[in-house]
Design a protein around this nucleic acid. Structure first.
Length: 154
DNA sequence: GCCAACGTTGGC
DNA sequence: GCCAACGTTGGC
């Protein structure tokens, strides 16, 4: 089993929105970065766990845990001309973008802020902390997962 | 809302 | 296949 960190802007999709979704499950659509896509398409397995991270907001940080709930399948928004994620170069026969479903596991009672993450020595190697890294989906190690498990409050 | 850093695009 | 220009990301 693998561990991940998945970033989303709460203005477009927050953990609260996931909590309100049917079965507390939602597709993780809109990823338009090849590296992030490859993680979803090639590496993620049903049952993997991921931390849900709120980015580009007043208080960025880890807000909860989700589980990967489906195999990868084509991101339908790429075929939808009205979607902001529409990709004219993608075809149904040869889709460029993939997504997985995620299911809510838990929402922390308080956010584990980016500041807190940066201050923790055990998390110094996290991919999202590396200078200039902007990947919306990154793997995290067992050790990093455990450090955050110990910081969370339910 | 600023801006630095990054990924992607497209002309050559 | 290079690389300049552009759009996006995301913390502050």
């Amino acid at each position: 089993m693998k561990y991940w960190l998945m970033k989303s802007e709460p203005d477009s999709f927050s953990i609260d929105a996931l909590a309100k979704a049917k079965n507390q499950t939602s597709s993780w659509d809109g990823v338009r970065n090849y590296q992030a896509r490859n993680f979803m398409r090639d590496k993620m397995q049903v049952g993997d766990l991921a931390y849900f991270y709120h980015s580009s907001c007043k208080n960025p940080g880890v807000v909860g845990t989700v589980a990967i709930a489906s195999k990868p399948y084509p991101d339908l928004t790429q075929f939808d001309k009205k979607s902001k994620y529409y990709d004219p170069k993608s075809t149904v026969d040869n889709p460029r973008w993939y997504m997985v479903d995620v299911k809510l596991v838990e929402i922390f009672s308080g956010i584990i802020s980016l500041k807190e993450i940066k201050a923790n020595e055990g998390l110094a190697d996290m991919v999202i902390l590396q200078p200039g890294n902007r990947l919306s989906i990154t793997p995290i190690t067992n050790g990093q997962w455990q450090v955050i498990e110990n910081l969370k409050k339910l």
